[in-house]
């Protein structure tokens, strides 16, 4: 290291072999002879679980989608005569026979209303699909994090047991 170990070369120490004076920690479970084992191999990637990300279903983007849809739906509903404010009472006009232009206008309006209704249905389906996907992704994310924790647990357990066996067999020098 910069201010400590860089100034100490390999010759400065290490863990030298040699006799153990009184009062030192004995190395138990080692045969008197035998070459030391190679050091344990370590993993090239971290085995620790990553922190769980915030739920996608509760994200700002999905929330905004719901809010905008509610606003659009509310505006359309308020514009419809069934839910709109009552119209002022006026004297009815005498019945007239509709002309050609009025008939065409009525047909176009009917067709446009149908298309608009279908668009709303598709948008609603999309929002429900996004909801479903977000919940499914959150569920899979939680499972991945659980799996990462399991991998860490497996690595820890196997590593402990293996190292214990290696030390008992002579292990490090």
């Amino acid at each position: 290291m910069g201010m400590t170990t860089s100034s100490r070369g390999a010759a400065a120490g290490g863990v030298p072999a040699g006799g153990v004076p009184a009062g030192e920690v004995p190395a138990e479970g080692r045969p008197a002879s035998g070459a030391p084992m190679a050091p344990p191999r370590l993993l090239s990637r971290p085995a620790a679980p990553a922190p769980l990300p915030p739920p996608l279903a509760q994200s700002e983007q999905v929330g905004t989608l719901h809010r905008r849809w509610a606003q659009l739906h509310g505006a359309a509903a308020s514009a419809s005569p069934a839910t709109g404010p009552p119209a002022p009472r006026v004297a009815p006009d005498p019945p007239r026979v509709p002309g050609v232009r009025a008939k065409v206008r009525a047909k176009v309006a009917t067709a446009a209303a149908g298309v608009q209704q279908a668009d709303r249905a598709v948008t609603g389906d999309l929002i429900r699909a996004v909801d479903l996907l977000a919940h499914r992704i959150d569920e899979i994310t939680a499972r991945v994090v659980d799996l990462e924790a399991l991998v860490q647990e497996v690595v820890d357990t196997v590593s402990e047991d293996l190292a214990r066996v290696q030390v008992a067999l002579g292990g490090p020098g």
Partner: peptide
Amino acid sequence: LRVDGTAALLD
């Protein structure tokens, strides 16, 4: 604590 090798270090 003094240790005389890696095995003693683990202990």
